[in-house]
Every structure is written in C-alpha cells, then in structure tokens.
Amino acid sequence: MTTWPSPSGIVVSARGLTKHYGDRAALNRIDLDLGRGVTGLLGRNGAGKTTLLRCLATAHDPDSGSLEVLGHDPTTAPGRARVRAQLGFLPQNPVFYPNFTAFTLLDYIAILKEVGGRRARHDEVRRVLDQVGLTDRRHTRVRRLSGGMRQRLGLAGALLGEPGLLLLDEPTIGLDPEQRIRFRDLVSEFAATRAVVLSTHQTEDVAAVCDRVVVLDEGLVVFADTPAALTDRARGRVWSLPERPSTGSTSWRSPDGRYRVLTPHGAEPPAGYGGIAEPLEPTLEDGYLLVTGSAEGTVAA
C-alpha cells in the first residue's frame, strides 16, 4: 500500500470494484481513480452512487476487486481504522438525537472522532458551527431545527477534525438558494487542498463546484471526465422548436412556449417536424441524459 498523501495525488483508487445485493450488481467491476478537488457523482436512482460512497466510507465491504482510500485498504481492520480517522461522511438521511442541542451533538461526534482534549474539541465544534452558519443555533435542540438546518448540522459533523476526504450524499436537500451558494463556497474552499466526492441529482451543483464528474448507470461507470466534457457530449444535439416533435427525441416545454429537444443521434435537426429548428447551447443535464441513455433511442456512450 502507498502512504498518504500519495505522490500521484490519488485519494481513491478502485479496480474491478463489485458489490451485489442479492442477484443485482450495484457496482459492476468498476475502475476509478479520484484525486483532490470536487468529484461529482451523477446517476439515476439505483445507479450505484450511494453504494460507492458507502464502500468508500467503510460502511460496506465490496464483494470483490481492490480499493484504496487515503493510502489504506478499508477492507482490513487496521486500514478501516486509519481511513475512518481521516474521513468525513454526510449520508443521505442523517439521523440525529433529537434532544441534543446542536453543540452537544457535534461535541459527541467529535468525541467519537477522538478530536483532541475538551478545550480543543470545543474550539473545533465552534469552528464548524460557524462554517455552516449555525453559531446562533448552537443551543437549540435538534428537534427544533428546520430540515435545512439539520442538513447543515450533518455537514458540520462531517467537517469535524479536518478530514482528508469528504463524502457527501445529496447534501443540498432542503437548502434554500442562499444556503446552496454558501454550501458551494464552503465545499470549494475545503477542496482546494483535499478531496470531496459529491453524490447528487442536482446537475447545477456539479456545474458550479465540481472539477470532475463521474456518471454511474446500472453499476457501471459510463462517463468520467470534466463537467465541460460532459456538456460537450450534447453539442449539436440540442434544438428549439415551436412544437413538440412526434418521435425520436426527448423534449420538454420551455417557459417561452417553445420545446427544448435533445436528439440522440448526430447533429441533424429532429426528424418528423417541418418547422424551423434553432440550435441551442447544451447544458450539463443534456450531456448527462445522453450518456445514460435517458434520451429516447440513445445508447449510453
């Protein structure tokens, strides 16, 4: 095993990683290298995003393949302990003790993480409360916090101890637009020197903060590159029409009454409609729909 940080800058390395639930392969022999910065995980429900995060977080052991996280093998007891000491994890639906205050809950988590002595631990709790904008709610019981506040409290718990790898599963659920902007800024600052893996359905979050994007589909990696490269997959395939085309394309109505149309095959205007097709600039969402085969008639590329 390599030591952390590795000279190559690789934080996570997976080879042939496989995980089954019954007869279904949630992860199907995936190969993946993740480095510093923010990596966005995109995919449909059941694509394998949460399973991958749980394997990285040492909550699940893979069935086969090799996995290295922060220079350690998380499938061994010593490696698992070393990974957990350097890891921050925000699960999709964090469960909190409702009668704890925000401060006492984070203090409890910090004790479990073995964060310093009492004074250093309390300083660290105050630091992360300030980072997520909950200092004024530090004495509020968890049950009285709004859903967005509880989500930010979970993020604060993940940030305790300055982890080398931060895993976030749907972290912006329940956040209002101002809080989402603050979240993006916080994650970007954190990732300047460390690694973040962000699993989300929000393509705008990926476009805003991610250096790299990995798209999973049915347990397979179908795309791994920059957000710009994913957007470019749809260049020349996005059109605006005054009416919805009859077949062969994915389309939806825009606020201006026209239809945004995504064609799966080549750069030709949508077939089956004689009106004027205006080409549009692609978005990250357009590229995502193409590589996952969500656009009608598309084969994942």
Rank of each mutant, 00 (worst) to 15 (best):
P5G: 05
L41H: 07
L41C: 13
V12G: 04
F89H: 10
A208S: 11
V132S: 01
S8L: 11
H139N: 15
L42P: 01
G248P: 09
K113E: 00
G16W: 08
P282D: 12
L186D: 02
R119G: 03
V206W: 01
V132E: 01
T58M: 06
L167S: 02
R82E: 15
L289E: 03
R84D: 13
A277H: 11
H122K: 10
L280P: 07
K19N: 08
S240K: 15
N45L: 13
V196D: 00
S240A: 15
G154Y: 00
H139M: 14
D107E: 13
M149H: 12
P245D: 10
V187H: 01
L230Q: 04
R137F: 14
E268V: 15
H139Q: 15
L175N: 03
R260M: 11
P242W: 06
A158S: 04
A59R: 12
D107K: 00
V132D: 02
T140I: 14
T247P: 12
E278Y: 15
G71T: 09
T200C: 08
N93L: 15
L160H: 04
V125C: 05
N93T: 15
P270C: 13
G65Q: 09
R143I: 12
E162V: 11
K113G: 00
T263Y: 09
E189L: 13
G46W: 07
T50C: 09
Y108R: 00
R150E: 03
